[in-house]
């Protein structure tokens, strides 16, 4: 079943090579071909539903650093699911990929999220703005170099920032991230909790700004 569309894809696009996958069929294609491959899969192989557009950050200095990944599902042919990955062109800091909003309008928000989190610019996207973080946020949080706790920056809304004297701070990880102990039968022990409780909201981590309280 899966072999049919894979064989058709390979005969049409010899550049597509198999990609290691634990579940669904997956292929690697060059970035220049990805638009044509996706159009072929949609129009001739009945992959009518774009499930997800996401990306992988392979770490700083890797080449290519970013890979965009498309997940496709066929609603008319049972069990047809394929993952298409394409290494991003462009520099480390400004990766680019073609937009597929022309093929699936639903790609719009997926690509906006991908841009927001990884900073991948989708060329041809009608409205490439951030979707989760606010406009003007200077970072792309899912990049490898970005710490989970965040980086100090200005609060959205300059008037509120000035009025409250508050800014975006690196969150006190307090020994976190919070980890669940899976397999623990005592449920209160299994709850997500910080493993290191030596510092907290009140006891600042060495070298980090303590949380500022609101100006009265």
């Amino acid at each position: 079943m899966s072999a049919e569309f894979l064989a058709a894809l390979r005969s049409r696009f010899p550049q597509a090579v198999d990609r290691a996958s634990a579940d669904h069929p997956a292929v690697n294609v060059p970035l220049a071909e990805v638009g044509a491959v996706l159009k072929f899969l949609r129009d001739e192989q009945a992959f009518d539903l774009l499930m997800d557009v996401t990306a992988i950050d392979w770490a700083e200095g890797a080449n290519p650093r970013f890979t965009v990944v498309y997940h496709l599902l066929s609603t008319t042919r049972a069990g047809s699911y394929i993952r298409v990955a394409a290494p991003c062109g462009g520099m480390d800091e400004a990766p680019v990929a073609p937009s597929v909003t022309g093929l699936w309008p639903g790609a719009n928000w997926h690509e906006r999220e991908c841009y927001d989190m990884f900073g991948i610019r989708f060329e041809g996207h009608p409205d490439l703005r951030r979707i989760l973080m606010w406009d003007g946020y200077p970072y792309h949080p899912l990049r490898k170099e970005f710490p989970l706790a965040g980086i100090e920056t200005a609060l959205p809304g300059a008037d509120v920032a000035e009025e409250t004297g508050t800014q975006v701070v690196a969150a006190p990880m307090a020994g976190g991230p919070f980890v669940a102990s899976s397999g623990e039968m005592n449920l209160s022990e299994a709850e997500p909790r910080a493993k290191d409780e030596s510092w907290s909201d009140r006891v600042a981590q060495p070298g980090q700004t303590p949380l500022r309280q609101v100006k009265e």
Partner: peptide
């Protein structure tokens, strides 16, 4: 709360009393 992350305000007392 448990959201020790870049996206979450660490307590609403930082913006309102």
């Amino acid at each position: 709360g448990m959201y020790r992350s870049y996206a979450t305000l660490q307590g609403v007392d930082r913006i309102v009393p």
